[in-house]
């Protein structure tokens, strides 16, 4: 878009208003995370300071208790004492397999849905939309009894498959809308040249579909990484992923008086997402708007 910016210049008072608003919003968006990051290197008495809120910045008690203004106690407690690293490993395994399996399924299905002109393709997508709207916890209440009976409960593999299925509706919509943007002529001309559908997909579509796959993959990753309802209820204590682990810290550490473990774990779980946005901001934005622009 190369319209002249002069047309869009706002009057001074309006610009000032918008800038003020923007600054307020940025503070709202960023400060809670910065505050917690800073506080994660303090002791509890500073992070939750009844005496003086500036203690959380200067770390009065942290200095008296540990000798330095910053302490890694929270991180040590979370990662070593409470074995948060196990949860991190489990999360990594779950995310990797969910993204791989989910992308394979939804790429194939999304391609077929974008190319089919029959009514059932439409109904397929509508069913997916309804599934997307259902709270995952309602499905979990359906899993528990059969899973207990068939001894499927508590395994990482079960959770992975469940997350793949819950992920499907959203990924399908996204992949379908991406494939609709790849002209039909491309694969149809390949088929005129003698390819069958699978060959056309492999040789013509596969090389050009990666932007869509990456964006959909990002959102599958976010879903698997952020899930709480499924992982909290389908996994045992010793193979928990990060988010249920953090939630369980709240139960155990509050009583032990060591809420700082949870604070450190929260920061540890947030850091990868921070890096993710840093590198994939463009894809995330395009993914969020993909559904909107194409209806």
């Amino acid at each position: 878009m190369s319209h002249a910016p002069t047309h869009r210049r706002l009057p001074g008072y309006l610009q000032a208003l918008l800038t003020t608003f923007l600054v307020v919003w940025l503070i709202m968006a960023a400060v809670p995370f910065l505050w917690t990051l800073w506080g994660s290197f303090k002791v509890e008495g500073d992070f939750f300071s009844k005496a003086d809120w500036t203690n959380a910045l200067t770390g009065e008690l942290t200095i008296t208790e540990t000798g330095g203004a910053f302490t890694g106690q929270g991180y040590y407690g979370a990662w070593v004492q409470e074995e948060f690293w196990r949860a991190v490993m489990n999360s990594a395994i779950v995310c990797f397999f969910v993204v791989t399996i989910s992308l394979t399924c939804s790429t194939l299905a999304g391609y077929a849905l974008s190319r089919s002109t029959y009514n059932y393709a439409f109904w397929f997508l509508i069913a997916a939309l309804i599934f997307r709207a259902m709270p995952p916890i309602t499905l979990v209440s359906g899993y528990l009894l059969p899973f207990f009976e068939w001894n499927l409960w508590g395994h990482l593999s079960t959770t992975i498959i469940v997350l793949v299925a819950i992920n499907q509706p959203f990924s399908l919509w996204m992949m379908t809308s991406f494939f609709r943007n790849i002209p039909k002529d491309l694969d149809e001309s390949a088929m005129v040249d003698g390819c069958n559908r699978i060959q056309a997909f492999r040789h013509v579509i596969l090389p050009v579909m990666w932007p869509g796959v990456i964006t959909t993959g990002l959102f599958s990753f976010l879903l698997a990484y952020n899930d709480f309802a499924v992982t909290a209820l389908l996994l045992e204590k010793d193979n928990q992923t990060m988010i249920p682990k953090i939630a369980s810290f709240l139960g155990t550490t509050q009583t032990k008086g060591n809420v700082m473990f949870a604070v450190a774990a929260v920061i540890s779980a947030t850091a990868p997402l921070f890096v993710l946005i840093l590198f994939f901001q463009r894809q995330i934005v395009s993914g969020l708007t993909a559904g909107a622009v194409k209806g």
Partner: peptide, 19 residues
């Protein structure tokens, strides 16, 4: 093409709803 996705959704979304 849709089979893997369809099976996953039937087995882990439709059946749980029935359950």
């Amino acid at each position: 093409f849709v089979a893997p996705s369809l099976i996953a959704m039937i087995a882990l979304i439709v059946f749980p709803v029935i359950s």
